[in-house]
Write a protein that binds this DNA or RNA. Structure first.
Length: 541
RNA sequence: GCCCCCGUAGCUCAGCCGGACAGAGCAGCUGCCUUCUAAGCAGUUUGUCGCAGGUUCGAAUCCUGCCGGGGGCGCCA
């Protein structure tokens, strides 16, 4: 989508060049000022350049303006120099009407489609909760984030594969098996075991042998089924469910250790292998094998990431972990450098802790104690859309607290209804259009210049910004920026809906046509945004 | 001791690759349903942007130090 702000930036570079000063668009900004009095767009180029070339900012601004006045942009009305040296651009509304036509032409498929990803092959791993119990609300929080990020990255032309890593090996599974067998025998589960009631339920169904490993594997499979169902209810489906056991069984761990060894990066101590990760910036060296000869978690993880990058050929790997996995980041990155993959291709996003409140009680998570709120419980009460939007409303690197009781009782605390209601109103207008048999002429026959009401203009301005928001949210891995835009845009639509009737005896048919196109374009934008979040667009409420 | 995240209105949070008087929602108060859905709109109240320095024409935003909260620093996973 050709954006006016890009054209402005280009024109500014041209102006600078005519003054014999070289600037590139990345050095300055062209943005929408917070206040309308400051024009449709504004730039700090004169101030930036002034510093760079030792000129006076306002003087430079004047030179730039006189150039632009001689070589005006389309729809350019006037320029203004303000404050310490801002240049403010005022445009005729025609540029907004042109944008509207573009949105209609592009449609839902192509509007706000960015090319920044350039087809890069990305593996996005998230959720990956151990199959030792059902998902809790915290798991769902980051799962929604991961799923939306995948949608966002695809919109930005990354080639994304989503993956859930199933940790179906090691001590946790053994402990799960022990807990299961204890419950089946009617014993209490020991302190380190899994004490949740779901283990009792599983135990009642288990008819396999009295073998810890077998029981553990069986229970893990059952749990995985439950997890899959919970995610399904949230509309989250993974491209790949990757078994950690398969890595170990294939000998890949052994191979990657050999690789490190061949580079002289492993030393042995009491028959245990140690990876010299401090050579790659880690704070200490790390064990790769345990006393009994088993591989450590890190060894398996390195092999897993070798598989992601080298075996499967992903150019970029994004892992989304809980902040409690912070400690493993440095070692894993060190390993990526060591095996020649390059740690800069591995992005680890740490989701900060979500603490849940219920009234005044702070609920602490512990899967082993079993006193967590199951994700399904929340989804069943709120529905998938509300649950997703709630968790996507805040930045991932911020610890948040959510009052479950409040959210359940008072759904108005959840902005999903505000947003969905805006979409439902758009749909409602179109229903009335059809009921009354209004046939809208082709957009080229419609006089869009009738759209000059402040509410209409505000909608158009905000809609125009959306493609940049998508790109920014993608690059920053920040789906919540889509939510923020959507809240803002929905608010503008509600105001428009209230002040500007689309179909009414008091509205000229020509204006009705123009407004119907405006509504259609808004619907496109909102539907794209909702689809990026995985939130349902309701036709009526 | 070291590492990561955070500290903005009564509450939950935006704004943070420096920009023009600091924002939203909720809560409170006041208006608005004979026209496309009042799950809405309009108005109104609220701030030592944790503290102290520094860089800058300009700092909530960048740097340093402190204070406070959360998470990490296993041969666990």
């Amino acid at each position: 989508m050709s954006s006016l702000s890009d054209s402005i930036a280009a024109a500014l570079c041209g102006a600078m060049e005519s003054l014999g000063l070289e600037m590139t668009p990345s050095l300055f900004v062209v943005e929408r000022p917070a206040r309308l009095e400051h024009g449709e767009f504004s730039t700090n180029v004169a101030m930036v350049a002034a510093k760079r070339f030792g000129e006076k900012p306002r003087l430079l601004a004047e030179k730039i303006c006189s150039y632009l006045n001689e070589n005006p942009l389309r729809y350019q009305q006037r320029l203004e120099i303000a404050g310490p040296g801002f240049i403010n651009f005022f445009f005729e509304f025609g540029y907004l009407h042109d944008e509207l036509v573009q949105v209609i032409d592009l449609g839902e498929e192509s509007f706000a489609l960015s090319q920044v990803g350039a087809g890069e092959k990305v593996l996005l791993e998230f959720c990956s909760a151990n199959p030792t119990g059902p998902l809790h609300v915290g798991n769902g929080w980051w799962a929604s984030y991961g799923d939306s990020l995948a949608r966002l990255l695809r919109r930005c032309s990354y080639e994304v594969s989503t993956e859930y890593s199933v940790n179906d090996t090691g001590g946790q599974i053994r402990r799960l098996g022990e807990s299961l067998l204890a419950r089946r025998a009617g014993r209490e589960v020991e302190e380190e075991g899994y004490q949740g009631d779901y283990v009792k339920e599983l135990a009642a169904d288990y008819s396999g042998p009295e073998v810890v490993e077998a029981a553990g594997r069986w229970a893990a499979d059952k749990n995985l089924e439950i997890i899959r169902n919970s995610l399904d209810k949230l509309g989250i489906r993974f491209d790949v469910w990757f078994s950690q056991a398969s890595i170990e069984e294939s000998g890949a761990v052994r191979n990657v250790l050999d690789l490190l060894d061949s580079k002289g990066l492993i030393v042995e101590e009491d028959s245990k292998k140690i990876f010299l990760s401090t050579r790659f910036g880690d704070t200490r060296d790390r064990y790769l094998t345990k006393a009994e000869g088993d591989f450590t978690y890190l060894a398996g993880d390195i092999a897993y990431h070798y598989n992601k990058f080298v075996v499967r050929g992903f150019q970029r790997v994004i892992d989304i972990f809980g902040a409690d996995h912070h400690g493993q980041v440095a070692s894993l990155k060190a390993a990526m450098d060591a095996i020649g993959v390059g740690s800069q291709h591995l992005e680890v996003i740490l989701g900060q802790m979500v603490s849940l409140l219920s009234g005044n009680d702070r609920l602490k998570f512990s899967k082993r104690k079993g006193n967590l709120i199951p994700l399904e419980e929340l989804v069943d009460e709120l529905g998938p859309s509300a649950t997703r939007l709630l968790s996507l409303s805040t930045s991932i690197d911020r610890a948040t607290s959510v009052d479950v009781a409040k959210v359940k009782a008072q759904s108005m605390d959840n902005p999903v209804y505000y947003i969905q209601y805006a979409h439902a109103r758009m749909a409602s207008i179109e229903r009335v259009r059809d009921q009354r048999g209004i046939v809208v002429p082709d957009i080229s026959e419609v006089d869009l210049s009738l759209l000059v009401h402040p509410r209409e203009l505000a909608l158009l301005r905000e809609m125009m910004v959306f493609p940049q928001i998508v790109e920014e949210a993608g690059l920053e891995r920040a789906p919540f920026k889509i939510v923020n835009w959507l809240k803002e845009f929905s608010g503008l639509f509600h105001s428009f809906y209230h002040d500007c009737y689309v179909i009414s005896d008091g509205v000229e048919m020509e204006l009705t046509y123009a407004r119907l196109y405006l509504v259609a374009s808004c619907k496109i934008a909102v539907r794209v945004a909702l689809s990026l979040l995985g939130v349902e667009a309701l036709e009526q409420m």
